[in-house]
Amino acid sequence: MVDVLGHLGMALIWLAPAWLVIDARKTAATFVGVGFWFGMLPDVDLVLSNTIGTVKHHGIFHTVLAVGIMAAVVGPIVGYVLKRVLGGSTWFSDAAADDALSLGVVMVFVAGVAHVFADILSAPDISEGIEPFWPVYAQTLGIDLVWYNNPWVNWGLFLGGVALNVALYVRATPEPPRRTRA
């Protein structure tokens, strides 16, 4: 488990391959720029636990199954909003507008699973362990690699995610035309 900054950084890292598979640079930027915010989606259980007594942090919402369900519900809405707001603009290619609903599902799912993975990286010393593969595998999983409030880890994940995406953005930037001598 990492803090908010670490979760957002992990989402940036997991969304970075979009630069390699999405043809339009502007669509990849939108995919990563909007998608990384969903790196906090599994922590919806923190809000729900205040109103629904049976919901606990690191419970059902921290499973791949729940992230998949949330992506299937929230993702098409995100894709639709992006299509309506950004379709035909400089930030969302026309080809991506046709696949906007599925792009929304993928961005929400990848960012949500990145959150679950980040929580696996630390032992449940200050919080409950998570069972990310429930109901298929109902065992807690923790690697005990990082501590929740470690600023080096949290800032490192975030800055590493930003740096990775900037590097891939620059790599995806088309080369300017070369001037030929006449």
Rank of each mutant, 00 (worst) to 15 (best):
M1S: 10
L5D: 08
H7L: 03
L8I: 12
L8A: 11
W14V: 14
A16H: 06
P17H: 05
I22R: 13
D23T: 14
A24V: 08
A24L: 05
T27E: 08
V32F: 04
V34S: 04
W37Q: 12
W37D: 07
F38K: 11
G39S: 05
D45R: 01
L46F: 07
G53Y: 12
H57R: 02
H58W: 04
I60N: 10
I60M: 07
I60H: 12
A66W: 12
I69S: 09
A71L: 07
G75L: 05
I77V: 15
V78Y: 08
G79L: 01
Y80C: 03
V85K: 09
L86M: 14
W91Q: 10
D99L: 06
D99C: 08
S102M: 15
S102I: 15
G104N: 05
V105K: 07
F109S: 06
V110P: 03
A111S: 14
A111R: 01
V116P: 02
I120E: 06
I120H: 10
P124L: 12
E128G: 15
G129L: 05
I130T: 07
E131T: 12
F133I: 13
W134S: 15
P135T: 01
P135A: 01
V136H: 09
Y137G: 03
Q139N: 08
Q139S: 09
L141I: 10
G142K: 08
D144Y: 09
N150D: 10
W155Q: 00
W155C: 00
W155I: 00
L157I: 08
L159W: 00
G160I: 01
G160D: 00
G160V: 01
A163E: 03
L164H: 00
N165P: 01
A167I: 03
E175A: 12
P177N: 08
